[in-house]
Simulated scan of single mutants.
Amino acid sequence: MANFELVTAADVQLMQALAQRVTATRPDLVNSDATYGEPAWNWGRGHADEGAGRPRRLWFSGGDLVAWGWASLPHRARRSDGSVKDVIGAYLAYQVHPTTPGWSTR
């Protein structure tokens, strides 16, 4: 994955604002990883577990965030008991505002 940045606390605030706009417009399109609280919870948990953070992309229209995506990549996680677990799966969390050009609910 080239040309990416890591999720920051400022990004989380932008993601939460997008979640509020999507919830107000089309609550049926809010996925469980993109509710108002989930970006903060998952970023904080991942930041504590993985250290540096997660790769992300943010898409803007004018000054408004209209879409985001972040990847949870395979990594080694240290547990509270000091043991280490290899997380071999990857996951993409995302949200797109439904009025974004090219977006379809089909």
Score class of each variant (00 low, 15 high):
Q95M: 10
A48Y: 13
F60N: 01
R45S: 14
G63A: 12
P74G: 12
L65M: 03
F4D: 07
H75M: 10
G37K: 06
Q16G: 11
P39Q: 04
T99P: 04
A9K: 07
R21M: 09
V12C: 10
D64Y: 01
A10Q: 03
H97T: 00
T23H: 05
E5G: 04
R106K: 10
L6T: 08
G37F: 12
D81Q: 09
V22S: 08
K85Q: 14
V22E: 00
S104L: 01
W103A: 09
N3V: 00
L18P: 04
V12A: 10
L73R: 13
H97P: 02
T105F: 02
S72M: 10
F60W: 06
S104P: 03
P74F: 05
W68I: 01
A10R: 07
M15E: 05
K85A: 06
F60S: 07
H75V: 14
A24L: 15
S80G: 08
L73G: 10
W70Y: 10
V96R: 01
W70L: 08
R57Y: 10
N42V: 08
Y91A: 13
V66F: 00
V22Q: 01
Q20T: 15
I88T: 15
Q13E: 13
W70F: 14
W103F: 12
G82D: 03
D11Q: 00
E5P: 00
L92V: 07
S61I: 04
S61A: 08
A77W: 09
L92R: 04
G89Y: 12
T25C: 14
A2S: 06
Y36N: 06
D11C: 09
S83Y: 05
G89M: 12
D11L: 03
S72C: 14
G63L: 11
T35L: 08
D81K: 12
H75G: 13
R21W: 08
T35A: 11
A17W: 05
R26H: 13
V30G: 04
S72I: 13
V12Q: 13
H75D: 13
V96D: 02
E50C: 13
G53L: 01
R26A: 15
D64K: 05
L14Y: 01
Q13N: 13
E38N: 07
N42C: 11
A17Y: 04
G82S: 07
R76L: 15
S104C: 08
Q20H: 13
G44I: 02
W41P: 02
Y36W: 14
P55H: 03
P101R: 03
S61V: 07
Y36D: 07
L58N: 13
G102T: 00
Q95Y: 00
G89P: 12
D33M: 02
G63E: 15
W41G: 14
P27N: 09
P27M: 14
L73K: 13
W70R: 02
P98V: 11
A2E: 06
V87S: 09
Y36P: 08
R78N: 05
H75W: 04
R45G: 15
V66H: 03
P74W: 04
R45K: 08
T25W: 11
T8M: 09
W59P: 01
A9N: 06
R76M: 09
E5H: 02
A90Y: 12
V12H: 14
P39W: 09
A90P: 10
Y94L: 05
V96C: 00
S104K: 02
A34D: 03
E38W: 14
